[in-house]
Simulated assay, not measured.
Amino acid sequence: MKICIFCSANKDIDPDFFTLTEELGRWAAKHHHSIIFGGVNQGLMECVAKGAHEAGGQTIGIIPRVVEQSGRISDFVDVEILCDNLNDRKQLMEDKADVFIALPGGIGTLDEIFTVVASATIGYHDKKVILYNMKGCWDSLIALLDDLQTRGFTRKKWEDRIRIVHSLEEIDQLLNN
């Protein structure tokens, strides 16, 4: 399975997120899954790629040219796919991935999550989107989604498109059912 990881490229975040992210990368490799990610050598992006790569897994970096030109490509990218911009990156990720897992992240991660979910909502695909709620990092987003649903702004239950997990064991169960 090709698992696309959406996550932070920042380094000044809770160290536990790095530990859990590297574990996810190793878990993916152990289960013969490939990791698709943004290809950047910073933050959780670098961490998940390192975990997967060092455990013998394959990593696929979908890399905007501006990242390539700035020299910020991860050393742990096995397959480089260059693209023109962030919109191209998201489309390539959506096309190539079997499932999406969102780790802690900011505006870019939110953009990626909702682009994929919106595409599924109108019928472009039926791929799973998983929020890995490490240390409650997505609790506020979950509350917002609940509020939007209560107010009638979502056509269906948002949980039909976005699944919440708190551990690798839950990811494993979700992907194997």
Rank of each mutant, 00 (worst) to 15 (best):
V48W: 06
A118I: 05
D14K: 10
I162P: 03
L131I: 04
D14Y: 10
L168F: 05
Q149H: 14
Y132S: 05
A97K: 07
F37W: 06
G57I: 03
G61K: 03
T150M: 15
E23R: 11
I101L: 02
S74F: 03
S140L: 11
T109N: 07
D147S: 15
K2W: 12
A97Y: 10
D95V: 04
D16G: 05
K50D: 00
N176Q: 12
N176P: 00
S34V: 06
H32C: 14
F114H: 09
I130V: 15
V99R: 00
Y124S: 11
V116N: 12
A120C: 14
K157G: 14
G108Y: 14
C4G: 08
L131F: 13
N41H: 11
G61M: 01
S8C: 12
L82D: 01
T21C: 13
I162R: 07
Q149Y: 14
V48K: 07
R163W: 10
D12T: 00
K30E: 11
D75R: 11
V67P: 00
A52K: 06
L86R: 01
K30Q: 08
R26W: 06
A49R: 07
L24P: 13
T150F: 14
A143C: 13
K157S: 15
T19W: 06
T154F: 13
D12R: 10
H31S: 07
Q58H: 01
D16C: 10
T19P: 06
W158D: 08
K96N: 12
I142K: 12
R26Y: 01
A120W: 08
T150I: 15
L92A: 02
S74P: 04
M45I: 04
K156Q: 13
T115C: 06
G123E: 12
D84H: 11
F37H: 12
F153E: 13
G56S: 08
G106T: 08
F153Q: 15
R72D: 06
L174E: 13
T21I: 07
L82C: 02
E22M: 04
R26H: 01
I13L: 06
G71E: 04
L144C: 11
G105M: 11
R65P: 04
R161S: 13
T19G: 11
N85R: 06
V66K: 06
F37V: 05
L141D: 10
G71S: 00
V165C: 14
L44D: 06
R163N: 09
K2P: 07
I35N: 01
A102R: 02
L144T: 15
E170W: 12
G56M: 04
I60V: 11
E159A: 12
L168N: 10
D111A: 14
P104A: 04
L131V: 07
Q69T: 03
G136E: 00
G43E: 00
I164C: 15
I63L: 03
D172F: 08
P15V: 13
I130A: 02
I13Y: 05
I35E: 03
K11D: 14
G61P: 02
